[in-house]
């Protein structure tokens, strides 16, 4: 059933693009407070490019891994910025993790989330607590791992992942940035949520709403 999994992933990216469009101004405002004010724009450009790239694919024949690779390249070429290499690397890593798989069962979802978070971590060299998008992706991937280990149901799995992501995003407001543009702010970054973390939580929420 490779058509179905590829289609689901494509739908997932569409949903992600929609949620980013809805949050775009808010994300740019968050970035204005501690960065350069463009995070909503870069994410919008990136996910629009992804949906355009995926629209050019034959989803009947494409594998989930193909979809992830195409999304990675589409995002990267269109965006640049910090998020381009970070998400492109995450999606590429996810493409590897999904390679050879035809279904998006919960272990596959866990592996996808884990691969994205590891790709972001390896590319950006950030750690947990650095006040970046990693503070969302890492706990979300961990929650997915625990959920699979505990044999949680599909709804429970996604609820756990979403909650971890939301908590992670909220927690960034209490952190002092040490990576990215906000790093130079140090103490002055306190009290402001990290825009990349907030958008990451929104993306995960979009995925969870589909319960793939």
């Amino acid at each position: 059933m490779s058509e179905i999994a590829a289609r689901t992933l494509a739908r997932m990216f569409e949903r992600m693009s929609e949620v980013i469009e809805a949050e775009k101004d808010h994300l740019s405002e968050l970035d204005g407070a501690i960065g350069d004010g463009d995070h909503g724009i870069t994410m919008s450009i990136g996910f629009k490019a992804v949906t355009t790239a995926l629209a050019g694919m034959n989803l009947e024949t494409a594998s989930p891994s193909d979809v992830m690779s195409t999304a990675a390249s589409g995002f990267l070429d269109a965006v640049g910025a910090s998020t381009g290499p970070l998400y492109a690397t995450g999606f590429r890593r996810a493409a590897q993790a999904l390679s050879g798989r035809d279904t998006l069962d919960l272990p596959a979802c866990r592996d996808m989330l884990t691969a994205i978070s590891e790709g972001i971590r390896d590319r950006g060299k950030a750690q947990r607590g650095d006040k970046t998008m990693l503070d969302v992706w890492l706990p979300a991937a961990e929650a997915a791992t625990v959920a699979v280990a505990n044999n949680l149901s599909r709804p429970a799995f996604w609820e756990a992942v979403e909650t971890a992501a939301e908590n992670g995003a909220a927690a960034t407001a209490t952190m002092i940035a040490t990576k990215g543009r906000a790093a130079r702010l140090r103490e002055r970054s306190l009290g402001h949520a990290d825009p990349g973390a907030v958008s990451a939580a929104a993306l995960i929420k979009a995925i969870a709403s589909l319960q793939p």
């Binding site: 101004d25 407070a33 004010g37 909503g40 002055r188």
Partner: peptide, 24 residues
Amino acid sequence: QTGKPNFTIGDDEMEIGMGLHGEP
């Protein structure tokens, strides 16, 4: 794209050490 000032600053204030993108 946003058409909005990327930070706010008082009418009589300046930001010392401002970055090239308006980073504080």
